[in-house]
């Protein structure tokens, strides 16, 4: 299961995480997000969490987080490492393509 990140736990779960974290910014009313959602869940259930932690931020409920991290389009996936944003992937895509983009973190 993908983690649920919120304004309340973002510091602890994402920014202070010892492993890299993939954060999927999404919303209920965004069609492409609903296509990507199950793909994110699938990847989350398959990857080794000691290498990459995967979770989601609902922008409706956490508008502050999207503003702070300059998310202007959804779905957007941000990758954090050591509290820093190190990667940004915009838009929905098939699972294989997303896995290829995440490959550097899964090696």
């Amino acid at each position: 299961m993908a983690h649920i990140f919120t304004e309340a736990n973002f510091q602890a779960e994402v920014l202070s995480s010892p492993v890299p974290v993939l954060v999927d910014f999404w919303a209920e009313w965004c069609g492409p997000c609903r296509v990507l959602g199950p793909i994110i869940e699938e990847i989350a259930s398959e990857v080794d969490e000691s290498k990459l932690k995967i979770g989601k931020v609902n922008v409706d409920q956490n508008a502050h987080l999207s503003t702070e991290h300059r998310v202007l389009s959804i779905p957007t996936m941000l990758i954090f490492k050591g509290g820093q944003e190190v990667g940004k992937i915009v838009g929905s895509m098939p699972k294989e393509e997303l896995l290829a983009k995440l490959a550097p973190y899964l090696a």
Binding site: W29, C30, G31, S66, R70, L72, S73, I74, K88, G91
Partner: peptide
């Protein structure tokens, strides 16, 4: 794209 350029008004208008 994704930084102010959008291909989906219904997705991104919110921001």
């Amino acid at each position: 794209y994704g930084n102010g350029v959008s291909a989906c008004a219904t997705c991104d208008g919110f921001f």
